[in-house]
């Protein structure tokens, strides 16, 4: 009972936050338009966080996701400036994501470097590459094709289901698709169960015949791909690419996964739990802005909530 309550604690926290904002902002918070705004605002973070969940299942980390997101945006934008079609630029950016993830995977799984150190190194490499390829410039304006930037502004109209004039953004749909893919992969495939086995005890998993090296490598590749997807979404959202623009995603993504981990039975990351973490961060940002809470206070508050949630859960676990 106590352990169930502990597991549900973070979810209860989310509900309380929603109730709180609904009461404080009766006219504007719990409206279809605002919630759809929130879903679009968190979509990029969500994709990075879902991708991060994949490696964190193995108790690994990927600190390079933020700079990979920047690099993917820059790769696409540089190809745009070279008059390449949108599909080619997108495919190339995603390929760079997979490649970067494979590099992380080789460093961690084959060479045996600690993920923290390996991905800290690649964080710097990918960030440097983004600056190098772009010459340090922000690529924007006419260089970014309409077809690319319109993606972040468009959506599927919800007129048919009773929300006149509101549409479900493509960004939100894409994040939901990524969630579905990560959820199915982790929860409903042998592949996913083996990742959890590695997270539980890598040595035992190896002795049980799990190909630990290959699985870790591929998991990092998935995370790299996810980071590239998020980077493209970000670039589309701001209709520009800047060599540092994804940097903020990494820490928030890790925070979201940690928040989610408080909901796991053994404190393990789960895709849907990560979504709860992302929602908490996104809703706090949206609601506190609407309540005109100072942005610095907001930052301190968000950090405090992450620590409080994790602390509550770990105290509960020890008891």
């Amino acid at each position: 009972m106590i352990s169930q309550l502990r597991q549900a604690g973070t979810l209860i926290g989310l509900v309380l936050i929603v109730v709180f904002f609904t009461v404080q902002l009766p006219e504007t918070f719990l409206t279809a338009r605002n919630l759809i705004n929130v879903s679009q605002q968190i979509s990029m973070l969500a994709v990075v966080a879902f991708a991060m969940t994949v490696v964190m299942v193995m108790t690994d980390f990927d600190l390079s996701v933020g700079s990979m997101a920047s690099l993917a945006g820059i790769v696409a934008a540089v190809l745009f400036t070279a008059d390449q079609p949108v599909w080619l630029a997108v495919v190339a950016a995603l390929a760079v994501g997979v490649l970067g993830g494979v590099v992380n995977g080789v460093l961690v799984a084959v060479l045996g470097i600690l993920p923290f150190v390996a991905t800290l190194g690649t964080l710097t490499i990918y960030s440097g590459a983004a600056f190098w390829i772009s010459d340090g410039k922000t690529i924007f304006g006419r260089d970014i094709p309409k077809g690319f930037s319109e993606f972040a502004r468009g959506g599927v109209s919800l007129d048919a289901v009773g929300f006149a004039g509101v549409s479900l953004p493509y960004m939100t749909i894409l994040a939901l698709v990524v969630l579905a893919v990560v959820w199915v992969t982790l929860e409903h495939t042998t592949y996913g169960r083996r990742l959890y086995a590695i997270g539980g005890n890598a040595e035992a998993a190896r002795l049980a015949g799990v190909r630990v090296r290959w699985l870790r490598l591929s998991a990092f590749a998935i995370t790299g791909l996810g980071a590239a997807v998020a980077g493209l979404m970000y670039a589309s959202r701001v209709a520009s690419a800047n060599p540092t623009q994804g940097a903020g995603l990494m820490l928030d993504a890790i925070a979201a996964v940690f928040l989610g981990m408080t909901m796991g039975k053994e404190g393990e990351p789960r895709a849907l739990a990560t979504l709860v973490g992302v929602l908490i961060l996104g809703i706090l940002d949206n609601g506190l802005t609407q309540m005109k809470v100072d942005s610095y206070v907001r930052e301190m508050l968000v950090g405090t909530i992450v620590i409080a949630a994790v602390a509550t859960s770990s105290i509960g676990r020890r008891a």
């Binding site: 338009r33 605002q41 970000y234 520009s240 942005s295 930052e299």
Partner: peptide
Amino acid sequence: WEVNVIDTAGDMAAVISRIEDAVTQK
């Protein structure tokens, strides 16, 4: 006037998000 200053600490996408929030808040 009542002024609400919002800093997104370098995050451009967050600027868009906060503009949307300000619009929601009318």
